[in-house]
């Protein structure tokens, strides 16, 4: 059925004014917010940059939908889709298929002012990154690219860029990740992305170290393998330690870095260093998950900590 042709603005506004409902406590429909300040509850059928097509409450099913020019509309308040509220309440627990459906259904609204399509897209991308399939991570990049290009909300666009970096890190596309992190850092003080990138690079080095030592079990005797082995080991540890040394109050990341450094020392067979970083972890970040994981891995009395630990504190 063809939509009713757009009526002139003045007439349209008169109609809408007649239809405009007073604010009610419950809302289950989309709402057009006009530039006049009036609101029109309706069910949006389609929206473009120029025109919005909608059905009014109580309209007969076979009645043609109404339409209006977007120039009269301040913004559209879109009703949540089924399940959307629950997802938004706790995105980390939302099933991936739910997020996918929400994104699929809402992505057509990407870029519409006040639409949360972009935010849902970012949540969906993050859920994809929690999986183990590199194809999912690739898909996350595609979604983030759309959101960062088109969403109306600067914060959501920023979130999309950050999530994209996380996807690049997972895919070990480190050079690209580095460039994007550098660009993001220029815009924000938050070192979170740099820490993520450094951590991923360090884990990659650690994996290479493990593989190299497995391939070269007598690497100490090999004058040509030894330098590469030492480089991987030291660079991994240096990177793991960076959150602790330079962002020490970001306790979760710093503690994780110390635990990972201990793992690297263990891989390298450096027991003294391993005990030392575990001692630091337990002393400085005792209440973190990393410390809980580390407990029992070391006997701190064998490691230099505070020489006066046994002495009266004050």
């Amino acid at each position: 059925m063809k939509p009713h042709p757009a009526i002139p603005i003045a007439g349209f506004l008169a109609v809408l004014a007649w239809l405009a409902a007073p604010a009610t406590g419950l809302r289950a429909q989309d709402v057009l917010h006009l530039k006049t300040g009036q609101t029109v509850p309706c069910a949006i059928e389609a929206v473009t940059d120029n025109i919005v097509t909608f059905r009014l409450p109580g309209m007969a099913k076979n009645a043609p939908p109404r339409s209006a020019k977007m120039e009269a509309v301040e913004f559209i308040e879109f009703a949540p889709l089924p399940g959307e509220a629950k997802v938004l309440a706790d995105p980390a627990k939302a099933p991936p298929e739910t997020l996918e459906k929400l994104w699929t259904d809402k992505s057509r609204l990407l870029g519409r002012p006040r639409s949360n399509a972009g935010a849902l897209g970012v949540l969906h991308a993050r859920a994809l990154l929690r999986g183990d399939d590199p194809l999912f991570w690739q898909r996350a990049i595609v979604i983030c690219d759309r959101v960062r290009e088109r969403d109306w909300d600067e914060k959501v666009r920023h979130d999309a860029r950050e999530t994209r970096v996380q996807a690049l890190i997972r895919l070990e596309r480190f050079d690209e990740a580095r460039k994007e992190v550098a660009a993001l850092i220029a815009e924000t003080d938050d070192p979170g992305l740099t820490i993520s990138l450094d951590h991923a690079l360090a884990r990659a080095d650690l994996r290479k170290l493990i593989a190299l030592q497995a391939e070269n079990p007598r690497w100490e005797e090999d004058d040509f393998v030894r330098p590469e082995r030492n480089r991987l080991y030291h660079e991994a540890v240096d990177r793991f330690l960076r959150p602790f040394l330079f962002h020490g109050t970001r306790e979760t990341e710093a503690a994780r870095g110390l635990l990972d450094a201990a793992e690297a020392h263990a891989v390298a067979g450096n027991e003294a260093e391993r005990r030392a970083v575990l001692a630091d972890l337990l002393a400085i970040y005792p209440n973190t998950e990393a410390a809980a994981a580390a407990r029992g891995q070391t006997d701190p009395s064998q490691t230099k900590t505070n020489p006066t630990d046994e002495a009266p504190k004050n």
């Binding site: 020490g248 400085i284 900590t305 505070n306 006066t308």
Partner: peptide, 14 residues
Amino acid sequence: ERQRWHDAIVCLQR
């Protein structure tokens, strides 16, 4: 000064 190194680190990090 008291060689309480970890405690010093906690302070200086903040």
